[in-house]
Design a binder for these strands. Structure first.
Lengths: 338, 338
DNA sequence: GGCTCATAAGACAACGTTGTCAACGACGGG
DNA sequence: CCCGTCGTTGACAACGTTGTCTTATGAGCC
């Protein structure tokens, strides 16, 4: 280790030379191909472990043209529990296919998303799951034509026909609002992200549909759009509560907004009802009651990964859209005592 | 697209033929090597974009022997916020080095950890960050000798000398316990994972050190080890509270146990003090007061990644151990109203 | 014994790219 | 006008592996 601390990695030829056989024979052994005497194979295996030989995956898949046993996942932010749950589910499916996962963050930047996409193409991943940040994905078309498999997650693709897995956003929001209406609420404050975003748009559509069915006019003063973090949500809630004829219930369009709403409602000891899209860890310990529109986040990732591996396995059927259902769940720490 | 829906991916030779130049010239263009007339380079670039050529990363790094611009991260479970925060931090550092991250879960299984490690070696990643599940890492030695760079995260390596980044577990626990002692607590219940696990062992050592300094005998009846989930923690807390001379304060060794403790203490309206290792999202909304031993999880990942890239950059200094400091923070939703 | 045939092993080329070196024309100095 | 030099470009081989084809060996059969 003093004069040569960085040994060269042994290659198939090194193994072959040390074992007194041809490189091809070593190749046969490491690939479990038939046509090698058991005795000789053992001998080769011994040399392999003695030299610490590891087949170079890159050379192997370059030559054989087979799969690279890698898939890509493009998400907005790995630190966000929603995305990390998806990543974990995808990785689990990948592992059952002996495939490794390259996860990259787009940081909600369409340009970065595209660059990451192309880099993954250059690595010749077998397929990709993408949670779109941008709104135009026609740039993927030429790659898809050249065989890249893609599944869109959480938001449908645009500018290209491809598989997608999405939540039943509109129906979930609609069901939630209908339950508020059944409880007698007539003024419902809505706090939601910008309708530029697919999920926000769909959820808002669900809200409007439920209100329309109940014959309740849509009141712009009770809808705050473009809310992206807890503080903005808290502020929006405060403003509505301070207005004339304040809402008796709130709908928050994602869990970040729900957190902000809980903070503000708790601070004021308000007993307004709260309905939030997305369940979240520790919702059961929140200091006030709330209802969440829940769905199986793992299933979202799992379904996308399964679809992707079907494609990789050779499925060439027409692109499908998988819709993950939602359901309403009561949350809040008060339930612990009942 | 009807008869040949899967076009072959163009290679450098295809581009060369279409542009009427040699493959080497195309290579020079895509690598920004000098020695190509600007006019000719433009012409080549045009053909490249027309054909949708993407350099094959595998062939490139196979031939050039340069870095693969990939690093590996082996963690226990990507769905766990602690690990996903680390993964995000590592990915962020990686991106500044134009490197992509392959994240794999060991599922706390030493065998799987080793298999994943070897697979990453076969992919010739430039380096790896590993949160050890197993307790013996001598199996990495031959790879390290052949140039694999490794940084151990959250737990130090054993059986091999390598860089590591860990939390100041003992000092953090010690400081927390000392603060409970200052508040007058003399009977402190301890709920912690198995001491087989490095972090649990260190934290328990911190607890014992603080108690010893205060002259308080270590009472086995007040220490429950081997607790791995919230329910077990809640049960352990309940048992201690139901015993004779119950504790007036509890220390929980990680955030899962802390959650369980909160549930049980809230259920009973107990006003026992609670001190938990690990901060967590939404700790500010917990329905009772608690103190957490907090540290910068992102920094943990960031430090490990920075160290790894120093190694990849050629640093051959003696392995270092980076220790991330901790500090005490008050949490609980009651703070919102003050 | 000569034949076929199956089996085992190796020779060789190729995957897509790039390092090395040679070839070419243009240019300027002696 | 020749020669060395520079700037461009290409030919060729090689990275580590594997697909294809060939060769060597011996068993089995008439």
């Amino acid at each position: 280790m003093d004069k040569q601390d960085r040994r060269r990695r042994p290659t198939i030829s090194d193994v072959a030379a040390a074992a007194g056989v041809s490189p091809k024979t070593v190749s046969r052994v490491i690939n479990n191909e038939p046509g090698v005497r058991a005795e000789l194979a053992d001998q080769v295996l011994e040399v392999i472990s003695k030299l610490g030989f590891r087949r170079n995956t890159m050379a192997s898949s370059l030559r054989s043209g087979r799969q690279t046993a890698t898939i890509g996942l493009i998400i907005e932010d790995l630190a966000n529990p929603f995305y990390s749950t998806i990543a974990a589910a995808v990785a689990n499916v990948a592992r059952t296919h002996d495939t490794q996962l390259i996860t990259v963050s787009s940081e909600e930047d369409p340009d970065l998303e595209q660059r990451q996409f192309l880099q993954l193409c250059q690595r010749r991943v077998d397929g990709m799951i993408i949670v779109p940040a941008g709104s135009d994905h026609s740039y993927t078309r030429s790659e898809v034509e050249m065989g890249m498999r893609m599944v869109f997650l959480d938001r449908p693709p645009s500018g290209i026909l491809a598989d997608s897995v999405v939540i039943d956003n509109a129906a979930g929001a609609r069901a939630g609002i209908m339950s508020l209406l059944e409880d007698g609420h007539r003024r419902i404050g809505v706090v939601i992200d910008s309708p530029i975003i697919y999920t926000a748009r769909e959820r808002l559509a669900g809200v409007r549909s439920a209100l329309a069915d109940a014959g309740i006019p849509y009141d712009d003063a009770l809808v705050e759009v473009g809310v992206t973090n807890p503080d903005e949500a808290a502020h929006a809630i405060a403003t509505m509560l301070d207005g004339v004829d304040p809402p008796t219930a709130f709908f928050t369009g994602n869990n970040r907004s729900t957190i902000g709403a809980i903070q503000e409602l708790y601070r004021r000891d308000s007993d307004a009802a709260l309905l939030g899209f997305d369940d979240f860890e520790l919702a059961t310990l929140m200091p006030r009651p709330l209802t969440v529109i829940a769905y199986d986040v793992q299933e979202l990732g799992r379904a996308a990964a399964l679809r992707l591996f079907e494609r990789i396995g050779g499925d060439t059927s027409w692109p499908s859209e998988t819709v993950i259902p939602t359901h309403l769940v009561q949350r809040g720490v008060q339930l612990l005592k009942s």
